[in-house]
C-alpha cells in the first residue's frame, strides 16, 4: 500500500525563481529530472508543465534552463534588477534587466561550447 502524501507549493520568494511558458512546454520533465533541489515537480496531469513547488529553495543554478529542449523555461535571478553597467564611450548607464537597456544584435557563445 502506498502512503498518501501532499505538496503545498510554496508561495514564491522575491521572484518566481522559475517560470514556464505553457505554450512552449511539452511536459517532458527534463527540467524536473535535473533539478538538484526538487524545486520542480512533475505535473500530476501527464504532459502538462511541471509544478514550481519549492521556488524558495532554488539555488539559481540554471541547470533546468540548460536542460529544457524547448526554451520554455526562464529562471529569474532575484537580484538582477540591481546591477548597473556603463557604456565606456558614451558614459550612458544602464541596469541589467531594465526596460531601457540597449539591445544586442548578436549572441556570441562562450568559449568551450
Amino acid at each position: 500500500m502506498s502512503d498518501k502524501c501532499y505538496v503545498v507549493p510554496n508561495p514564491s520568494g522575491p521572484t518566481l525563481a522559475v517560470s514556464i511558458d505553457p505554450d512552449r512546454c511539452v511536459g517532458c520533465n527534463s527540467c524536473v529530472n535535473i533539478c538538484r533541489i526538487q524545486t520542480l515537480l512533475p505535473n500530476p496531469v501527464h504532459g502538462r508543465p511541471p509544478i514550481v513547488a519549492y521556488p524558495d529553495e532554488c539555488w539559481y543554478c540554471a541547470c533546468c534552463v540548460e536542460a529544457c529542449p524547448r526554451g520554455a523555461l526562464e529562471m529569474h535571478l532575484p537580484i538582477n534588477q540591481r546591477i548597473f553597467f556603463k557604456r565606456k564611450e558614451t558614459g550612458e548607464v544602464f541596469r541589467i534587466g531594465a526596460a531601457d537597456s540597449p539591445s544586442k544584435s548578436y549572441f556570441q557563445p562562450p568559449v568551450g561550447w
Binding site: D3, C5, P9
Partner: peptide, 17 residues
Amino acid sequence: FQNNNGNEAIEWPYPVH
C-alpha cells in the same frame, strides 16, 4: 505564472512507500 500552477495542495507526484 503568478499562481505557480495553483497554490492548492496537490498529491505528491511519486508513489510513496
